[in-house]
Each structure stands twice: as C-alpha cells, then as structure tokens.
Design a protein around this nucleic acid. Sequence first.
DNA 1: GTTTTTTGTGCAAACGTTTGTATTTTTGTA
DNA 2: TACAAAAATACAAACGTTTGCACAAAAAAC
Lengths: 340, 340
Amino acid sequence: MVKKRVTITDIALEMGITPSTVSRALAGNQRVRVDTRERVLNVAAKMGYQPNVLASSLRSGRSDTIGMVVPRINRHFFSHVISGVEAVLNPAGYNLLISQTHERQEHEIKAFSTLLRNRVAGIIVSHSVETQTFEHFRQIIDEEISLVQFDRVTEQVPGPRIVNDNFLGALRSTQHLIKNGCRRIAHFAGALHVNVYEQRLDGYRYALEQAGIDVDPALIVENCIVQEAGMEAVENVIVPQQVDGIFAASDLSALGAIRTLKELNIAIPEKVKISGFANEPFAEMIDPTLTSVEQNAFEMGNQAARSMIESLGKEDPVSEEIHIPVRLIQRRSSVLNNSI
Amino acid sequence: MVKKRVTITDIALEMGITPSTVSRALAGNQRVRVDTRERVLNVAAKMGYQPNVLASSLRSGRSDTIGMVVPRINRHFFSHVISGVEAVLNPAGYNLLISQTHERQEHEIKAFSTLLRNRVAGIIVSHSVETQTFEHFRQIIDEEISLVQFDRVTEQVPGPRIVNDNFLGALRSTQHLIKNGCRRIAHFAGALHVNVYEQRLDGYRYALEQAGIDVDPALIVENCIVQEAGMEAVENVIVPQQVDGIFAASDLSALGAIRTLKELNIAIPEKVKISGFANEPFAEMIDPTLTSVEQNAFEMGNQAARSMIESLGKEDPVSEEIHIPVRLIQRRSSVLNNSI
DNA sequence: GTTTTTTGTGCAAACGTTTGTATTTTTGTA
DNA sequence: TACAAAAATACAAACGTTTGCACAAAAAAC
C-alpha cells in the first residue's frame, strides 16, 4: 500500500553527487559549500523529499519523539496539560506520542513498553490511580531515558516533578471557609495514596489546626471525587454530622453535594458553604456558582515540556519539584453577600 | 544520554544462534522450531529486550503508527474523539501520533509533513476552520497513505468520512422549537464553508420550509459560535427582531444568549426558547438546562479508527460517508412545563 | 540404503540515514 | 608556477531489523 518515496540517494543521483553530501547539506553542515546546499535544498523541494525520521533516528541514535502517558486524554485537566506540552514541544521540533492508561497500572506498563520500543527520547507521565509500586519505571531509568512526572508524582522515581501547589490550594480554600464562618468543615478526599489528594487533605488539616478547630475524622470522606460520591456523602455525613462547610478535593463531588443539598432544600451558602478543586468549566455555570481552586493545566504542560527539553540536554536527572501556582476563585457557593 | 540497548544480535550471540532465527522466533514465524522459539522468548524477556520499532519499520516498510490531526486537543469534542480512536487503535497494536492545528491551515500543513516524515501508516484528520483548499492533501494521497476524515470533512479528498448527522440534528432541533410554538426562529450559524455548519443551516432551513415558515435571512447570524457572539446576537438580532426561538449551532453561543437574556429579564423558555448543538457537559448544569443535540464523539473516534484499520488493508480508498447518529436532548431551555 | 522431501537455520543484503576517514578540489602563499 | 593548507566532497561502514535464498540435517519415501 505504500509507494516508494524519494530518498537522499535519489537526490544525490539526480545531482551527480553523493548521499553523504546531500545529508550534510540538509543538516546545514558547515562543511558543504553554500551553493551546493542551496542546490540540494531546491532539488529536494522539487522532488518532494520528506526525510525518513526512522532511518535518521536509527542511525544517529537520537530521537525527537517524546512520549506522554496520562490517565485519560479526554479529561479537561489532562487534555489541557497535553495541549500545554504540545505548545512548547512542537516549536522545538519534537513530536508527541500519547498513551492513556485509563487509570490502570497494567496499561501504564504497556504504555511504557510501547514508548520504549518506539525509542522516544523522553517520557512525560502522570500516574494512574492504581499505581502504587514503581518497578515499571526501572526500565526507563536504566535505559537513561529522560523522565518528567506531573500532577500525580512520586519521589521514588528520579527526575523533575511538576505539581500544583495542592497544599496551598487546600489551605487557602479551607481558610476561606473558616473566614466565612464555617466551623464544622467536611473534606471530600480522594484516594490518599495519590500525592495530590494526600496534600489536599494535609492543607485542610493544617488550616483547621491553625484556626484551633479539631480535625474530626468523621468529617473526612475518602474516595469522594465523583458526582455520585458527593451525593451520597450529603446523606451519610453532611446532614447527620451537621456540617456547615465542605472542602471537596474535586469539583465533581462538590457538584454532587450541591445537587443533593438543593434537593433537600438546604440553602447554599447560608446553611452549608462549599468549595471545590480544579475549577472545571462548569464551576462558573452552575447555580450557585462554585468556589474552586484554579490549577493552570496549560502552564503545567508548558513547564513539563520545558523540564523535558532541559533534561534531554543533561547527563543526570535533577529531581527537583516545580510548583505551579494555584488560585482560589471565590464564588457564590461559599460567600453570602453579593459582593463577588 | 542513551545507553546501548539489547538487540536481537545480543540475544543471538547469547544463545549461539543467528539474528535471523531470533527475528523469526519473535515474529512467531512457523519455520522456527517451537522449543527454540520458546527459548528465544525466554532469553529475550530475561535480557529485557525491547524491539526497535524504528529498525523494524525501516526494514519492513510497514508502520504501526497512525497520525491524528485535530484543531485542538483540549476541546471536549476532540479529546473524546481522540480517546475513541485510541480505544480501538491501541488494542489493535497501533500507536497514535497527535498534532493540533490551532485552527490554522499553516499548522495543518506542517502537521502533515511531520507525520509523513515519521512514516505513519495513515492519518486521521479533522480540518482546521481555515482550511478551504486541499492541495496539501495531495502528498498524502500521492504517497498512498490511508486517510480518514472526521467531523470537518470534504468530498474533494478521497477516503472514508466519518460525520455526525448534522442535517438531521438541526432538523430535529428546529422542528422541536416549532412544535413548542416558536414561529420566528433565529439560527446562530458557524463559518458556512465548513461542512458541519453548512449542514446545520440546511437542516434549520428545511425544518422551517416543511412547516411553512419563511426563512428570514435577518434571523441567520453567521460566525456565531462563541459565547460573546451569542451575547451580541441577543442585542443585535434576538431583541430587535422579536425572535421567539433560537437554534444555535454551538452550545457556547446558546449559553451566551441565555446569559444575556437573563440579564435583560427575558424569560426562557416562556419568551424565547433555545436549543444548542454538541451537548457540552455544561448543558445540563446551567440554568435553565440547555436543550441540545448530542453527538457521540467517542463513537465517532471508534468508527474513524475502524475505518482506518480497514483502509490499511485495502489497495484503493473507498470514499464512503459514515454517519454517526445524533440525538436531541430536550431540556428546560426549550420546554415550558416541568414534564421533562 | 539411497534418494527425495521436509524442516529448521544460517548467510547476506537491504531499508535510508549519519558520520569518521580518505580523497579530491580549491584557495592562499611563496 | 609550485606547494601546502584548507575546504569540499566521496567512500564505506554502521544503526537493528527483515527476508529471500542457500544449505544442512532430519524425516519420509522408495
């Protein structure tokens, strides 16, 4: 099904010179005369030459393809990170090979394998929620392929980690609820072995402690990040425990809570104040609008790409952690008066 | 930066056999004895062998990488199509190389070039909004690379086209407004050189004609697909023209209209009924909830991938058009009583 | 027991580049 | 004009596979 394509040998034959000269001319090598370079470029263009990246990478041992492994491409946050990575990598001459894990470690392992087989120069990854062991990173590290982690990361693997300031976001968010009069504040947490949810819980705890409020374990709802979980939590925790504030680690569970509270005619924000996390697009569209912590996914992608490019130039990976600032966006779900 | 990796030659040396036998064993070739195959597999696993796709593709002339070109990765619709493509392609052993055009034809051309250089087996593409000429598809066609178009497509390029049933969606949507009592129905259209928007306009027109309602050009607002455009259109068209129904080609412009109408205290759906297109996640979250035409992006991706795989097996491309069914979802923005 | 067929391996070339080294051409200098 | 130095080009090997063909050993047929 594939036609034969024009190669540098074809160009060389056409011009009566050698493939090596053509190669050097195309590469902009200094050792080829200016006018021959221009002639080569002309003939190449005329013949519709497209360099064969496979052959080039094979011979040179260099690759301009970066692999990216994310839980789900079609999640708002991740698709924006991807976009941010692409925005930096493409102009720099790199391509992106993308795999999704669907939150399965098994798929993560397969994805790594595929990327290694494709001889990517580096891998940008955010762990699947299942991922708690890291032996499958061994091969990447052993083969000295640059590795950049973002969002869901671990210190057990070397290389740069690009993360949101989850702790600060949670801290500010909880402080905001306290400042607005909440005293019994619940937390909808995620899976606590994942760094982002652990840190959000820490921020929540710290805010309470600073304010002299006891942390009540009964008010911490684990694995509460989807809408349905938020709904159930209202029945099981919010109402029985007489909660007056909710800091949700996810906008979706916050949404679930809002919906159920509205059904029960419990006034938001009068009776219960709510803030979420991620500032999903719907946060400003629902009624009441949802206070949330904005995380700059696009910028996170930019930074991940920049760290990757930097890593590619270095011998040994630097295991720094880079924080992308977050911002609390106050909306009606947590503020009484109409001043916002 | 890249360590030397284990090759089939290393395996062959280790076992005292020949690289060709190793190659055949790994490929599952019949001509190699069963027990040697198993021994090879064992040694390969033990040595941590990862086949070099570059070398393999270079030699065999075959590629298991598919390129995908979309306007924007981080748009809800496209990210779901990508996900759908991936869901079919990955299990079939293909990889996805993704580029975004940011709606620029110039980037589309560059993306094609990149994919060709990477010797992809096929390209799945949805045009940028700028794309009105198609010479840059020439090279893809000439090199006999499989091409599948989706959503934004043209008949000027051969190969399968996977599209939503835009006409039917628009027809049903407009009929729905008519059935609910609207007589002066405006249409927020997109760029009419793009097939999807053209077809939505056609569906709108056809519905009016069938109902014996004159099509008033003053009620057709072109290039009205972002929120701001919807807002402006309320001031410029909806109010002055005493419109009682809006069929928007985009949920975003519908949202803009809703917001401005609410500001002007014009009751929805009592005074103006509205329906959008795409069924974005926010459609069921805003107030009032937005009637919209659901398009199955994930399924569209599945189908695009299936068509691609099919194309790869064929000599000549079949230029069929495959329609993904759409569904009108009735919500409060267009229906008076509470029965929905 | 010899010949034919089958089965399993090995050999070597090829895919399209890049790149170290050798060779030729050009340039500069005496 | 001759000669060395510098510049430009050519040669050939290599990257890691795949694959047609040759070949040997084993199995089957006579």
